[in-house]
């Protein structure tokens, strides 16, 4: 019996020593909470080797899933990456803090254009550092539909394409489409406009093949439908598998989105988080992320390093004229959010 006990004790001691040894290699930990698979994983190891800070990465699928975790403080995250409208909600509820721009010299690489876009949610660009950005538009298969035939969101209501359409399945993004058709803002507070938009969504339902978000890419590659509403970041990947895909930003304009880094209020490792952001903004790392994700990254340092073919690609980098017609999602107050969900549910129920 004694032998066993001493053996166990030795084993415990040995284990604790080894774990000590491991921890001493690192000077500290950085807890990152990010959309799943949203930067090149190689970069994480590179960052760890370079700085000696261990990165602990957790991921989520939707902003709505992340929000209660940050709000209730159930886990200590230092750095998060989420969409701009969620950033504005987190600012309003005092859950994230301003970045110290002096600690992030690579901020100079960020495209002015993108900073300006974020002004509507983060005045003076004090909280959010853009990671990726893009638009929503219509992707269609030119094997089945003549190129140039689709120019407007209204085409998604054309009975000719019945059962060929894949629509978005997330509240704000899906509402954006009928709101744009009606000529309203995608951030409207008017119940009347939301109600009209819901009626449009309901009338479209019989024509829709499927409501999907992340699955859309594979469905289009698999030729399950001819038309899909998709984010620009996925287009290169789809075109890589099937050349005959055309992406168009409808003439009514669309939603332009940015996913941003932000530092939580509760962090104890603010410098580490800033180091990580600075690291991600370094042009060669931005390029690695672009090549990994194929999402547009607003980094001017990266522009000079990348293929001209990509840089001139309107899908990734829409012209200023197109961007004029686009709008950024802003978070709504609690009552309006409830009103939106009520109409969304009504649409879902039919």
């Amino acid at each position: 019996m004694k032998k066993i006990i001493s053996f166990v004790l030795i084993a415990i001691m040995a284990l604790s020593f080894s774990s000590c040894g491991r921890a001493s290699e690192y000077i500290g930990e950085l807890h990152v909470y990010c959309f799943g698979d949203y930067f090149d994983p190689e970069l994480m190891y590179k960052f760890e080797d370079e700085t000696g800070i261990m990165v602990v990465l957790d991921s989520f699928d939707t902003n709505e899933e992340m929000y209660p975790v940050i709000k209730n403080g159930t886990a200590d995250y230092d750095l998060i990456c989420c969409s701009e409208y969620m950033i504005s909600q987190l600012i309003a509820e005092d859950l994230i803090q301003k970045v110290n721009k002096e600690n992030i010299p690579n901020l100079k690489y960020i495209d002015e254009k993108n900073l300006k876009m974020l002004e509507s949610i983060d005045e003076g660009n004090q909280y959010a550092v853009p990671h990726t950005w893009g638009t929503y538009g219509i992707l269609y298969n030119t094997d089945h539909i003549k190129k140039g035939e689709i120019t407007s969101w209204k085409d998604l209501w054309n009975e000719k394409y019945s059962n060929q359409i894949i629509m978005l399945d997330s509240l704000r993004d899906a509402m954006m489409i009928p709101l744009k058709i009606l000529g309203c803002s995608e951030n409207t507070l008017s119940e009347e406009e939301v109600s009209k938009a819901t009626d449009l969504l309901i009338s479209q339902k019989p024509l829709v093949y499927k409501y999907a978000n992340d699955a859309t890419r594979d469905l289009m590659i698999g030729d399950a439908a001819d038309i899909a509403v998709i984010t620009s970041g996925e287009v290169l990947y789809v075109q890589d598998c099937n050349d005959h895909m055309n992406y168009v930003i409808p003439k009514e304009g669309t939603e332009v989105w940015s996913d941003c880094w932000a530092i939580t209020k509760s962090t104890k490792n603010k410098e580490y988080a800033e180091k990580f952001i600075n690291f991600m903004l370094r042009p060669e790392n931005a390029l690695a992320n672009f090549e990994y994700l194929t999402y547009a990254i607003p980094n001017t340092g990266m522009y000079s390093m990348m293929d001209k073919e990509y840089l001139n690609n309107e899908v990734l980098f829409p012209s200023d004229e197109t961007l004029e017609r686009c709008e950024t999602l802003v978070t709504l107050d609690a009552d309006t959010r409830k009103m939106y969900s009520r109409y969304w549910k009504k649409f879902k129920a039919i």
Partner: peptide
């Protein structure tokens, strides 16, 4: 395909989308 709305879907949406 997001077109069949069962009571389970409604409950799930309350937790994941509308946060109620």
């Amino acid at each position: 395909g997001g077109k069949i709305n069962l009571i389970g879907n409604i409950i799930e949406q309350e937790f994941t989308v509308t946060n109620n």
